[in-house]
Amino acid sequence: MAEGGRRFFTVPQFATLKKLGAIFVPPLKGNVGAVDTDAPEFLDYLIGVSPAERQTLYRSGLDGLNAQARRQFNKAFADLDNKQADAILKPLLTPVPWVYDLPKDPMKRFVYQVHQDLRTATRNSPAAAAASASSGRRGGAGGGLYWNPIDPV
């Protein structure tokens, strides 16, 4: 697993993803945020082994945000301040009443997806579990009964 570093995305794509992690899932209410948990690195791994459709959604989405930042602020997305990032991201947010009916617009769809994925990757990370254990707080994503491969062929 590529917890430690970037493998799939290009350097600018990964920088954009990290910036999204910082904005979408900041450390709130004493919880760890996406960047503290290596959630962007985990998504670099996950998307790298995902079907082509998901890879394209991410790559085009990250490139699209970066291009927009250059057009609007003459900077890379990763170098925007929070107000500038908000100006790009907020118009791309959509409430999704039902998670199998995603926005048709690819940028809106990407922004929805990366937000949800960063949240899940953060919540389910070893770092989040360690942080909640050491603070003695309830929380962390928990666990369950895992089915091993059953008598595989």
Binding site: N124, S125, P126, A128, A129, G140, A141, G142, G143, G144, L145, Y146, W147, N148, I150
Partner: peptide, 11 residues
């Protein structure tokens, strides 16, 4: 035998 308790972060 086929089921084990696991934490989600270990998957």
């Amino acid at each position: 035998k086929d089921r084990t308790n696991k934490a989600v972060q270990d998957l």
